[in-house]
């Protein structure tokens, strides 16, 4: 679709099951909403956040307050359609942090102008991974007034197409975080890296090999290690990334292998 699109990420919902505003709950040290914001940015769009908490301003993106509160996704869509300068809005949610660039790119490419375009994965419809035309604004406003809040209904009743993602996306992408348990499981599914420790470092760690969550770079790795294993604080060691000794900061990728190398003195 070549029509103009603005991207809105919903985070305003009251999260009864989490007991707190879930977009700011942390996954591996970052607010949950950061993951989808990053993905949107990587696809080339500048996302806006729809939320009702000033804390979201600290994320560095425009934050819109819901025009009418506590109306769920329908309320969020109304806010987005009212605010947009574009012909279409892409509506996403903070609680699907695994959505990939490919899926968003596919959604945009397959979407048809002046229609509602919504992802469907293995038969399940995902209204919050969809593109809606601005022309829906009046219908959405009426729905709110009538208390008709079901997104599925809105979609069915207007010109629409479902975009099947079975072939291009993994099931995990549509994994929706609603409970603290979901959140914990998500933490465990995050990328890890392998660490090999040598000499006195292995001795202090009590193990020669361990896995940790993937840090962004070498300096973050050092910081994480020292926080997790304070016994390393007073030791000097060199770090090698994928068998290369690093002397300056370097980005760390998933499945990278890091070695912690102290000098040996014995002879």
């Amino acid at each position: 679709m070549k029509e103009s699109i603005e991207v809105f990420v919903l985070s305003g919902g009251k999260s009864s099951r989490m007991g707190e505003d879930k977009g700011l709950l942390k996954i591996n040290g970052l607010p949950m909403i950061n993951y989808i914001l990053d993905t949107v940015k990587q696809v080339g769009y500048s996302p806006q956040i729809i939320a009702n908490d000033a804390e979201y301003l600290e994320l560095g993106f425009p934050v819109l307050e819901d025009k009418i509160r506590e109306m769920g996704p329908m309320g969020g869509l109304f806010t987005a359609l009212s605010a947009t300068q574009a012909n279409h809005v892409m509506l996403l949610s903070c609680d699907t942090p695994n959505i990939s660039r490919q899926t968003l790119t596919y959604l945009i490419a397959q979407s048809e102008a002046h229609k509602t375009n919504v992802c469907r994965h293995k038969g399940k419809i995902h209204p919050l991974i969809g593109i809606y035309p601005k022309t829906l604004l009046q219908i959405v406003a009426n729905n709110l007034e009538m208390g008709r809040l079901k997104m599925q209904r809105l979609i069915q009743d207007s010109p629409h197409q479902f975009i099947d993602t079975d072939k291009i996306a993994s099931d995990q992408e549509f994994y929706n975080i609603n409970t603290k348990k979901d959140l914990l499981e998500m933490q465990l599914e995050k990328q890890t890296i392998k660490i090999m420790a040598f000499g006195v470092i292995a001795e202090k760690l009590g193990q020669a090999e361990l896995k940790i969550e993937q840090p962004q770079n070498i300096s973050e790795l050092r910081e994480t290690l020292l926080n997790t294993y304070p016994q390393l604080a007073s030791l000097k060691f060199t770090i090698a990334l994928n068998k290369q000794v690093v002397s300056e900061d370097k980005a760390i990728g998933p499945d990278d292998e890091v070695a912690l190398l102290p000098p040996f003195s014995g002879g």
Binding site: V200, S234, L235, K236, T238, V245, S247, L261, P262, P263, S265
Partner: peptide, 12 residues
Amino acid sequence: DIFPEPPEAHEV
């Protein structure tokens, strides 16, 4: 280039 500085006494 591998180990820029000697460890401190307590590390040995």
